[in-house]
Design a binder for these strands. Sequence first.
DNA 1: CACTTGACCTGTCCGC
DNA 2: TGCGGACAGGTCAAGT
Length: 290
Amino acid sequence: MPELPEVETVRIGLNELLPGHKVVFAASDWAKSFPNSQADVNAFLIGSKVVRVRRRAKVLIIDLDTNYSLIVHLKMTGQLVYRALGNRIRFGAGHPNSSLIGQLPDKSTRVTLELDKAHLFFNDQRKFGWMKLLPTVEIEQLDFFKKVGPEPLEKDFTSTKFIQCLRKRNNSGAKAVLLDQTIVAGVGNIYADESLWGAGIHPAKLVREINDRQLRTLFSELQFVLKLAIDKGGSTDKNYVNAEGKLGSYLNFARVFRREELDCPRCSSAIQKLKVAGRGTHICPACQKL
DNA sequence: CACTTGACCTGTCCGC
DNA sequence: TGCGGACAGGTCAAGT
């Protein structure tokens, strides 16, 4: 569930908190969450210092002063939570993580990094996420990074380039294309639905049947929802928390996502939930016609 | 080659 | 109260 705004929110937080910290110890109880050998961990992670925290698409990159990096994908339920020693995290009442008050690690903690004056916990209920240690220069050689599309919020990413990217999949549905990480990076289910509603485009509409003017609107709506979501600290549905364990509030501002049966904010029609591109999809049937 | 489905996992919810 | 099944959705691999 973490998409670009959630991962960016974690990045901003970790980039404030981590640089300068030394890694003292690392432990994992689920090998797939952190598949590196103990020898590599000992040689390139333990004793290293964090230099900076970057993001590409939905992937976090924690650069170390050993010329190695930790790359982290949160997938659906991953959390990367920093806690200064002696500091307690408070989740909101009623939140599934509210039982975690004051206690981490918990049963979803897959990796614990002990820093000199803090802990960094990688929690992941569903175990789809991962953390990997590898030489910094090898990151761009990974298949994912070679194939991934442009960052939608980069300054030089114009509506013209956006349209060129989408037209490569002219025969596919609009939502399927937005979700394709090789076309545009970082968009997932929430912001695909939100931006398509903003542009008044049905998610199953074929790209070839959408004109350039509508695609330009989709581009500005996509940038709008991504920026708003970063401003609101991301979307917390069930699991997502930021680097300090705090919730995101974008869903309080969502127009269609998880709002089936409620009124469309534009025309008051009842929002519908359907399945498009294999995903739960929310639309206003009046504003978004096929 | 483009598109769909299954696998990876756990927790929650719904119907019986 | 328990139990089976559907569902949640990011990405890769396999199948159509």
